[in-house]
Design a binder for these strands. Structure first.
Lengths: 144, 144
DNA sequence: TCTTATTAAATTGTATACAATTTAATTTGA
DNA sequence: TCAAATTAAATTGTATACAATTTAATAAGA
């Protein structure tokens, strides 16, 4: 019977997760285009808006990304003038990424984005909180 | 105040979604490696296990993928011997993708994957159903 | 009919992702 | 002290994703 076919697409939990994540990133695009940022660049700027200066390893730990993804991305952000990339004098293995003034100004322009996205997702407070908790619970299990 | 900073990473709903989707796909890897499939190839095989024969457009509609992603992916699956790719004689614009016997046999080998993944996600029935419903609700809103 | 519009795949170009390896710097420990 | 181990980024290679364009086939309509 269909509902017992564990390999049916509609019986998967991971598939809607995969699709929703992908489609949401796509929804961001028109808003992020105005800031000349991709989604991954946007969340990278987010951690740098919180902590002005971080090395690649720390950024990667917060975003669940490795240097293979971050190195070219950070070079792009540097090229756009939003961050600087300088080796740590005390330990040359570390690359210190720092947000520039231009990068800080971007945050003001980004303020409306979460509101507009929330509008388009259109979940009520309870549902959002519920989803949020379930996702972090999952993330916790995935970490070990 | 932090909880009102809508641009803080920990106040985002999309970020954990993006990370969890990514990390789950990574969890699949060791299991899918045994079938010589990537995650995207796996869900493509899923729709072809359900309907033995589909064109690219239909596969794309079910998986939320376009021909730019599917064309090279389907060529890979053809190269591996899991599908055939033949133009529709009635309408040459359509490419008919059909699962082969070798591709059908893969389904048997895949049977244990959903069980093993469920074990690693470790959500109870209620939580899973809850998440499932929230994701499809979101997907519904994203579609318009 | 025959030009125009539409449609389905494929192609092109850019940006992720990540495994695996390499490079360079630093730390450890015999 | 100095070879071996560890660490942080960068690099390499493969596979998505998707916007935008192109190609080829079919449909529509004047």
């Amino acid at each position: 019977m269909d509902q017992f076919d564990t390999l049916k697409l509609s019986n998967q939990l991971c598939f809607p997760l995969y699709v929703v994540a992908k489609e949401i990133v796509r929804k961001y695009k028109p808003y992020l285009d105005k800031l000349d940022l991709t989604y991954t660049q946007y969340i990278t700027m987010m951690v740098l808006w919180e902590d002005k200066s971080l090395n690649v390893k720390e950024i990667g730990k917060r975003l669940y990304l490795d240097s293979g993804t971050l190195t070219p991305l950070l070079k792009q952000l540097e090229y756009k003038g939003y961050v600087t990339r300088v080796r740590n004098k005390q330990d040359e293995r570390n690359l210190i990424v720092e947000v520039t003034n231009k990068g800080l100004k971007l945050k003001d322009k980004a303020q409306t984005i979460p509101i507009q996205m929330a509008k388009c997702l259109n979940l009520d407070q309870q549902e959002s909180l519920n989803l949020y908790k379930l996702l972090y619970k999952l993330l916790d299990k995935l970490n070990d």
